[in-house]
Design a binder for these strands. Structure first.
Lengths: 212, 212
DNA sequence: CGAATATATGGAGCAATGCTCCGCTTGGCA
DNA sequence: TGCCAAGCGGAGCATTGCTCCATATATTCG
């Protein structure tokens, strides 16, 4: 997001004023419709909410997922930015730093209707949403996890990508399935990272049958 | 599934022979298409595979999810039936019984393209798929979990429904996202059930600030 | 066996939805 | 003011779940 990334600085013509205005209107309208009707809301509805035609939507956001990504980008940015602060807050307790960041991540996912589901939709183009999350957040998790491993708090066999996807997955259904406590299960998962006395990963592969 | 449930026994006329044949043909065709193209394959494709018309499909399976449920029902039955055996095999190690059943459940989910995703689809009617899983498998998990809790092996604050949904969720993306190791994350989740020295669940809610 | 009838079938057609296309409109510059 | 590239709107296409009904056929009864 350096200033050099602005269109003008790259020698491209500045967009027309109505175009800029419409782009922002669309972003706001999409955010409103997503909040009201979920992330799967029809593009038509968003165009109507913004008071523009279908063509305008697709001019600004070539595919539906592009619109979704744009709407959530700055929230992902916030999540990606904090950990420097968070992990700095208590470098002596890296596990709590991990837990606190994961709690914020979980809150974000749970409060967005359909977002966790969308991260796994195989609809063409929705990979970019996934990619956005991976690119921005995996490095954060990597730092948090590494700090825990270095401090000897957690097992070393869980990769940041695994954990990120797992957390995102656990949040699926949080708002649609009544009895399911997504946050709690994320907590259980994090507890599973801690070292225990008996490493259960070995128990299910008795290479040598327990001698009598 | 008692004999009294058969149509004849309830005084209903037995279905025409071609109808019965087509129903089975459709089941086989659907299984083949699901395996090849995933669970979201168009109904048209299944009709074509079976060599019948659309009307025939919908006559036998009123909605798309009904077909999906029918295809997987006997596999769910198998999963629901085993734990009596499994938990009987080593009553002295209930945690291993839990792990072994969960491993089978995980295998089942991971090998069915799109099944875990379908369990959370908000498409009307797909709740019956979810209901099928919940009704058949939650009681099994309940028994397995209770045995572990009674043996003092695991925490008592995880309900069977939570665990079942969490496991299903963790399997999402197993076949579509390259780097993600669903089975491993299920293992981490199960490890999180075990008791550890410091209960992390209390750490984030210091009701009374730790007295000096 | 042959007719009568309930049952089953096939596929055109409807509705929803993502996306494209293109003729019309308009902001910005000379 | 006048020009024109950038922008816009919305009809229309393709896909897909599902419905409808004229036609075909299995089953039964005389």
């Amino acid at each position: 997001m350096s200033p050099a990334d602005t269109p003008q600085a790259r020698g491209e013509r500045r967009k027309r004023s109505d175009a800029r205005r419409n782009a922002q209107t669309l972003l706001d309208a999409a955010a409103a419709v997503f909040a009201r009707a979920g992330i799967d809301a029809p593009v038509r509805d968003i165009a109507a909410e913004a008071g523009v035609g279908m063509g305008t939507v697709y001019r600004h956001f070539p595919t539906r997922p592009d619109l979704v990504v744009a709407v959530f980008r700055h929230q992902v940015d916030a999540l990606a930015a904090t950990p420097a602060g968070a992990s700095g807050e208590n470098p002596e307790n890296p596990y709590e730093a991990l837990r606190s960041w994961v709690a914020r991540f979980t809150d974000f996912l749970v409060t967005k209707h359909g977002l966790p589901e969308a991260l796994h939709s195989d609809q063409a183009g929705l990979e970019s949403l996934h990619a956005e999350f991976v690119d921005r957040l995996v490095p954060v998790l990597d730092r948090l996890l590494r700090a825990c491993v270095d401090a000897g708090r957690i097992r070393a066999d869980v990769r940041p990508l695994d954990l990120m996807i797992a957390i995102g997955n656990l949040c699926i259904g949080a708002d649609t399935f009544p009895g399911y406590r997504a946050r709690h299960m994320v907590d259980v998962l994090l507890a599973g990272l801690l070292h225990h006395a008996p490493a259960p990963t070995d128990a299910d592969r008795p290479r040598t049958p327990t001698a009598p």
